[in-house]
Amino acid sequence: MLGTLQRLGRWGLGVFERLGRGHLFLLQTIGCLGVIVMRPRLVIRELHSVGVLSLLIIVVSGTFVGMVLAYQGYITLVRFGAAEALGTAVALSLVRELGPVVTALLFAGRAGSALTAEIGLMKATEQLSGMEMMAVNPMQRVIAPRFWAAFLSMPLLAAIFSAVGVMGGYFVGVGLLGVDGGSYWSQMQASVDFHEDVMNGIIKSVAFGFVAAWIALFEGYDAVPTSEGVSRATTRTVVHTALAVLALDFILTGLMFQ
């Protein structure tokens, strides 16, 4: 009984300690973000590995999610004789929810895990330590550019996801199910509000980008420098990012709901 309590206590302390280290890491990272203005090229390199390489999975998933939304939405809407509102249904689901959230989940799997593994391995092979000894701050040289890249990529990827999703929905709704093409777009335009819907979606994806970058980089930086430690950290990145994104999505949606 006491043993269980002790273990529970130790676990709790461990969680708090990690949280504390995570926040310190974030503060340090934010302190280094400004350095990038002097060397934007570092970010471009990372934008390639974080953004460009995630593009394919985002485009493919976005298209298919949009097409499925069109099928499902059509079944429901046609019962009320409101098949013309298909464009609205697809666009609102994508722009408000699925775009930012699914992009963040895919991002965690594709780019977040890669970031964690890369930094964890740099730590395991003493590359970070080596930089320190060469009087180069790894927070500035390694962490800050990757943070920027992840943070900037997420809204762009989410926008691409939503845009190709809307086109996928058009393909299925108009091309296959025979919804009128003109009303697909016009109903969408009439009901989707730029500030209420599109902007809120962008705000969400910016927040998700911040959290995903933070978790992925911290897990890599904090990884136990062995191959097992790095693989555990990679798994944690994916799981924690997914949970954090879903929780944050709930909070943000609640705040934006009024």
Partner: peptide
């Protein structure tokens, strides 16, 4: 990549909303 992302944002602003 950046151009595509901005184009998508533009489309969301102009064509979707």
């Amino acid at each position: 990549f950046v151009a595509l992302g901005l184009a998508a944002l533009f489309m969301l602003a102009m064509k979707v909303s």
